[in-house]
């Protein structure tokens, strides 16, 4: 790993100022960034730790919306997001206990790993990504594998999740990495159903529009019977072919509908 300067501001303003440097990058829990720096895939000149900013931590719930601070770690979400049980359950399945004590929701969303869990939750919930400078609707946020609408130096300060009537996340786990080989988050709101799928597509997390329409009309796994996800944009790797992942999309969506509560 190449060396870097390390700063740990205590306010968002100080962090934003430190990130004006072209060579600077934000560091949240580091559970992806540190391994990628070890491999020299990433070599920031300065790391700006966000974990000293108390304003970015914590969970609150009001008026049907759960708000989670950007550097809140997965273990905290698992323990304290009881107002949105499917989201808490998702957080409890990320990585392993040690990873959950470090990794953060803002880090996960900003990284937009194509197999990460949180992007599916945010997209299925119609979440709002709040940054130091604006609010971004989640449908505009994810822009393909490892790509988001965030500008250089922009920090996720919180994420707002409208709490659905029922929801479930079903992850078909890649057992070595514990990332989603395919994971499906299904939500049901008064105005319709949303289905977001991670781990499957070369474009990263995506919504399955046909399933949303069918499930809005009939919230039952049977409603998916005639549907299929095309395999042409799916990931193929040693863990599964594109056809296998396309099949998993439908199977896991059905399981999520059946488990939604």
């Amino acid at each position: 790993m190449y060396n870097f300067d390390f700063v740990k501001p205590s306010t968002v303003e100080e962090a934003v100022a430190a990130l004006q440097d072209d060579e600077a990058q934000p560091l949240s829990g580091g559970q992806t960034l540190i391994p990628s720096m070890k491999q020299r895939l990433n070599a920031p000149g300065t790391l700006v730790s966000l974990l000293g900013i108390e304003a970015l931590k914590g969970i609150s719930s009001a008026d049907g919306v759960l708000t989670i601070g950007g550097v809140t770690n997965h273990a905290t979400v698992a323990a304290e997001a009881g107002a949105y049980p499917a989201l808490a359950a998702l957080a409890a399945q990320i990585g392993d206990p040690a990873v959950r004590n470090r990794g953060t929701i803002g880090g996960s969303l900003a990284n937009n790993d194509p197999a990460a869990c949180y992007p599916a939750a945010a997209l299925a919930s119609g979440a709002t990504i709040v940054t130091n400078s604006r609010e971004i609707a989640v449908d505009d946020f994810f822009q393909g594998m490892f790509t988001t609408d965030l500008e250089e130096g922009e920090i996720i300060t919180s994420v707002k999740f409208p709490i659905p009537e029922v929801a479930s996340y079903q992850k078909f786990e890649q057992p070595a990495s514990r990332f989603a080989l395919t994971g499906v988050f299904v939500t049901k709101y008064a105005d319709g159903v949303r289905v977001a799928i991670t781990g499957a597509s070369e474009e990263g997390v995506f919504r399955w529009a046909e399933a949303e329409e069918a499930l809005t009309a009939n919230f039952s796994a049977d409603a998916l019977a005639a549907l299929a996800v095309p395999s042409n944009a799916m990931i193929t790797d040693l863990h599964g072919t594109a056809e296998y992942r396309a099949h998993l999309c439908k199977v896991m969506t059905g399981r999520a509908v059946a488990a939604a509560h």
Partner: peptide, 29 residues
């Protein structure tokens, strides 16, 4: 493993278990 997979480096930081190969010393200030 030095890749945060194996857990041989597990320690507690402020009472929470973490993988000490995936945290900088300066973060434990």
């Amino acid at each position: 493993c030095d890749t945060s997979q194996c857990g041989a480096c597990t320690v507690h930081v402020n009472g929470q278990q973490v993988k000490s190969c995936t945290m900088f010393a300066v973060e434990a200030e």
